[in-house]
Design a protein around this nucleic acid. Structure first.
Lengths: 208, 208, 208, 208
DNA sequence: AATGAATGAGACTTCATTCAT
DNA sequence: TATGAATGAAGTCTCATTCAT
């Protein structure tokens, strides 16, 4: 018999229900932020009663933690699965993948913001989730440097710079019209141009 | 036109009191975030009573709006005052100025995050404050392009890319240890390296 | 007569399970009090599921009633079994037996306190349980009066006075250090002295 | 000017309001016990809103603590004010004073019971309140021993024995009909008889 | 008969806002 | 104009009880 994880029917139901709650929480948290999200609304979104939430998570912050965990797993996996041998493709995928899903954009912002305010999230998110995302990016950069298609920049610095820009863009994007002005700053346009900036830099010629 | 602002003693006193409250609100909001900041705490920080807050601002969100307005004024002014004729100095000042003050870092995050959740802030912040900051940056870039020290990249895209990265770094910085890892990622080190990335790009050689 | 109670195997099993639940409930109620005791904790202590509790008892208050019933049976039986022909031995056993078991002390307090708040307990406990305990004590006192070793005091009044003191001491004892002060008020010391007070009174000489 | 405590009008109002809330809390706690008393009911009894309770007390347990404090003050004062030079009067007043007020009877039970369950109350009540009550009683007994109207029994033991009996009687009394049976056990009758027991003891003759 | 997940009423508590002083 | 006590709506969380499996 091969069925791995969910041993019996009850365990499968529990896992499914937990997933269903996490899904609902991700939706509500990403829409309203942590503080303005209410357990009542999450319960309604998950189509369960409020009490049921507490059968699966200790409290509201634990629920946010669960969402953070699932989110970090997903993003790390996505980055690890990027298939790109040249720098341009890698950059393009790093930059654009983060923007396909509005929920992912908003969760990125959510955790960055809330982590500072909630010690429990801070500990997990900054030391586990974000660390893994950055590490994965760094690893990919290291591969490209070894392949000779990327300058020998500290891959940790590069990974953080790209990650920071992605986060910032996520925020600008969510604010609508990229921080004001609808001057043709379309996804298609900036995708190419931002990649160009990161690849070739801003300087007219190489500056030391 | 002569500075007609503080007409008489009463008006001067009102302006001073309003400034004092905004200052306190900026401190408390930047520390605790909007939702977790309480009017009582702001009042204590400003050394006035809770009721007095309502003599100067309609409600809590109006107070956040006031802080946003003052913040945007200050940042715009700082950017306009940057004295730099070459790209490296410009980049260095853009990147490092935003990190001198912990309060400025946190307020940056605060408005980015809260603007999406509060229509009133959204309207003002994304259309006025952020717009002005980006416009000012764009204008400076345009000058550098005209001076021939910067590639002829769309200055709007460049301004938004830099701004996004700054915001992202602000968040990473606040999370402590730059998102995990104490691998010598010191302010001195990343200041130079990040500038290098933005000036010269990541690619081993110019990529089209 | 052969113990005719447990007719068949199923009944024996039911009785054993009921006993097991009552035992667990007595432990949890005596530790936490009625309101703070949870059905979940009682179930865990009894090593059954929450649902099973409701197969043996209608609800929480019915469970408390069951504990009260068993408790009254046990105490009444103990008093009836005291073997003492003189007043001093009787007093010593009445006073000290109630303190051997911490659980018995706490259950004494529990029922006294909760009975007033819960009509169902009130009815049973004050009219059945306590009544039987006091009646049994009264009966024993009557025997001692008849034997001429005890003054011809109303045995009902005497029984209630002794019972009241026992309850009060149970409470003081549970509070730790007998209401404060560790001035040598050891079980050995007060056992003898309290008996002396009840036997010989406080007055310097017989007062009318 | 002699007016001591309440300096100005606002302070007087605050003190009065706090008193009013404590009064209401004492009523509701004594009627329903701690757990079953609700903040809503206390607020209604005090004729204020629920929120106002929290302007004067940190939380529910702090409110119970406040009631305990006031109660201990009152009982200690009453005992100190007993005017009695002979043992019979002293006993009569100790025994009967505690029973005049149903609220005092019930509060006695309340604190004895809850103190064990709530560490905060435990600390204050058993170490401060009860200690003071017992100490005051002990002091009075010492005076009677010195006056030669009381046997040279350890006054600490005597004070605890009397206190224990009083508490136990308070409980029996509250249970209605003194633990069942309406056999002429009237307040008048038991007052005299219990005093007799404590004065002269149960034994037919002095027992060693 | 046993299980334990689901339910939802109701508890405590917070806090923006009002208003009498 | 300044104060801060009062308000009460709304939030998080608990837990006795039910019921499908």
């Amino acid at each position: 018999m091969i069925t791995a994880e969910p041993k019996n029917r009850r365990d499968r139901r529990r896992a499914a229900r937990q997933e269903q709650i996490l899904e609902a929480a991700a939706v509500v948290f990403s829409q309203n932020g942590y503080e303005r999200a209410t357990m009542k609304e999450i319960a309604q979104q998950a189509d369960v009663s409020e009490g049921t939430l507490y059968n699966y998570f200790d409290n509201k912050i634990d629920l946010l933690n669960g969402v953070a965990r699932a989110f970090a797993d997903e993003v790390t996996r996505k980055i690890a699965n990027i298939e790109a041998n040249n720098l341009r493709d890698m950059m393009a995928q790093l930059l654009t993948d983060r923007f396909r899903s509005g929920r992912e954009r908003r969760l990125f912002m959510l955790f960055l913001y809330e982590a500072r305010l909630h010690p429990e999230i801070q500990q997990y998110y900054s030391q586990q989730a974000l660390q893994r995302i950055i590490d994965e990016t760094e690893k990919r950069f290291r591969g490209l440097i070894d392949a000779g298609v990327m300058r020998a920049i500290d891959p940790g610095v590069a990974a953080r710079t790209i990650s920071a820009a992605i986060m910032g863009f996520a925020a600008l994007y969510e604010l609508g019209r990229y921080g004001g002005g609808d001057n043709g700053f379309s996804p298609q346009k900036w995708g190419a141009q931002v990649t160009d900036i990161f690849l070739n830099g801003l300087a007219a010629e190489m500056v030391q």
